[in-house]
Amino acid sequence: MENNDIIKVENRVYKKPELLREVHMHYCPGCSHGVVHKLVSEVIEELGLAEKAIGVSPVGCAVFAYNYIDIDWLEAAHGRATAMATAVKRLMPDKLVFTYQGDGDFAAIGTCESIHTCNRGESIAIIFINNAIYGMTGGQMAPTTLLGQKTATCPYGRRADLNGYPLSITPLLAQLDGTRYVTRQSVHTAANVRKTKAAIKKAFMNSMEGKGTSVVEVVSTCNTGWKLSPEKANQWMVENMFEKYPLGDLKDNDAKKD
C-alpha cells in the first residue's frame, strides 16, 4: 500500500485542532507551551465549549496565548489572572473560565491571588506551567527553580541561603478547602500528553459544573532557558524536576467517592 492510499481524509486519526490558529507561535522549538495550547484547544472543541470559553492569559511566555487559541481572552496584569478569572466566573457562571499561567505569574507575583482564589473555591480551571525558570525575560530564577540550578540571576546555581528554597505550590493548594481537583502532569511523552489532556478535560468540566477550583500543574521544559536541546531538556526534567515535583493527582474530591 502506498502512502497516498493511506493519506486520505477518511483515514485521518489526528489533526491540528481548529481552535489553534494557523499562525506561527512565537515559542522556541520544542517548548512545552505549544503542546499544552494544543491540548486546551482540543478539550474546548471536544466539550463543545468554544462559544462559552473565556481564557485569562498571564505575563510571561504565554502572554500571547490569545493570539493562538481562537476564543475570547483577557490579558491580565502580571500575577492577577486568577483575580480576573474570579470576577468573570462570578459575573457569568455559565462560562468556562480558565487561567493559563507560568511559575512567575502564578507562584511569585501572583501567589496572593492564586491562594485566595483557590481558597474561595472559585469554579475556574488554572493551568500552571512550571518550567523552573523565567522564559520571557531571558532565563532568570523562578520561585520553582531547583537548588543548584543555574539561571541568569543565580549563575552559580540556586543556593538556599541566598535565594531560599524552590516553592512547590500545588501541594499547598491541595490543602485548601476550595480546591476540587489538583494534579501535576507533564507532556514529554505521548502517554503523559494523554494524561494531561484528561486532566485539563476534568478541570474544564469542573468549571462548567461549578464544582470549585481545579489546578493542573504541568511540569515543563524551557530548553532555551536551560540551555539544552529539546530532547536533552526532557531528560533533564525527568532526572531533576520530578524528584521535587512528582507527577500525579494531589487531590481529587470526586475520586474519593468510591
Binding site: Y14, K16, P17, Y27, S32, H33, G34, V35, H188
Partner: peptide
C-alpha cells in the same frame, strides 16, 4: 501528540 506546534496529521 508530543509535537508542540501541531504540525503532524
Amino acid at each position: 501528540l508530543v509535537c508542540p506546534d501541531a504540525c503532524i496529521e
